[in-house]
Design a protein around this nucleic acid. Structure first.
Lengths: 150, 150
DNA sequence: CAGGTAGATGCGACTGAGTTGCAACTAGAT
DNA sequence: ATCTAGTTGCAACTCAGTCGCATCTACCTG
């Protein structure tokens, strides 16, 4: 289920430059991790990967950079139904929002893009006069495979 | 925006009895807090309220009971977009799911019931062959009031 | 209604995520 | 080359949530 990409990947650094955000070696490492990540890393995984690029990266820098990226709407924070503990997961924010489905049996995460989701958000904007900036729809249940085999 | 209630409130205890779950004084206190709560309490608020009914209630009992209620699908766990720190909020699970909107400016939480949301979940069931058990849709943005005044 | 016991509790110590204050460092403007 | 506001690493901290264990108790059985 490939996502439609309305943005070229590898542009996090460009975003920083455009907005006049200072670029450091540590940030470069973290951004590159976020850009190349196939999916859903938590803070400690990001730390480990970033340290392979620049060993000096510290835990607190990772958290500070993630907060920065979040504030600028460049990444999304996910809970993935807390399938593994209380931490958070992060992913680059590309084109359209998508739904995250977490299988409560095998732990698999599936993504799903839906026009109905877009329409639902528009309905919220209209009916509740609420300006939608971020949205997170997470679903817990059983994936196709686990659903059959029980 | 009152919620449609398909279940009589005050029935958490009955649920426990039906399922043969042992009832203790501490659980009674916690259940009664959950039943009478107008809305969205976090674990420490639940603890404080429960201790007013039964002073012996301990923090760990609150967490254990919340986990139990969650496992039985009697309460929902919310993040409310982490508007106040990293903790979780809990609410009784009545009739239909609803969307939670968190105003990033004034912090107000609004709820919204929508048929489109139900249809969206049905679409996920059908298109992804995914059995939906729990779903959480949280939206961050600006409420009608804050939207105007900026 | 008097045990017996599986299950629940309180306590305190622990874990793990995330934050913060501060002195040292550095990106990038001049 | 210099200056400084912004960033970093570090270590100490906070806070939510968990866990092991000794004690207690709800409730089943006779």
């Amino acid at each position: 289920m490939p996502l439609p990409q309305t943005e070229v990947p590898g542009r996090l650094q460009a975003h920083f430059a455009e907005r006049g955000i200072r670029m450091t070696q540590q940030r470069r490492a973290i951004l590159s991790v976020m850009e190349t990540a196939s999916k859903h890393l938590d803070a400690s995984q990001i730390l480990r990967k970033a340290q392979k690029i620049d060993a000096s990266v510290d835990r607190s820098t990772v958290y500070r950079t993630l907060r920065l990226l979040k504030r600028h709407g460049l990444i999304d924070e996910l809970d993935l139904m807390h399938i593994n503990g209380e931490g958070h997961y992060y992913e680059r924010r590309l084109g359209r929002d998508h739904i995250h489905m977490a299988c409560l049996r095998c732990g698999k995460i599936t993504e799903f893009v839906s026009d109905s989701f877009e329409r639902l958000k528009q309905q919220v904007e209209k009916d509740c006069r609420f300006r939608v900036l971020i949205s997170r729809l997470e679903i817990g249940g059983y994936c196709a495979t686990c659903r059959g085999s029980q």
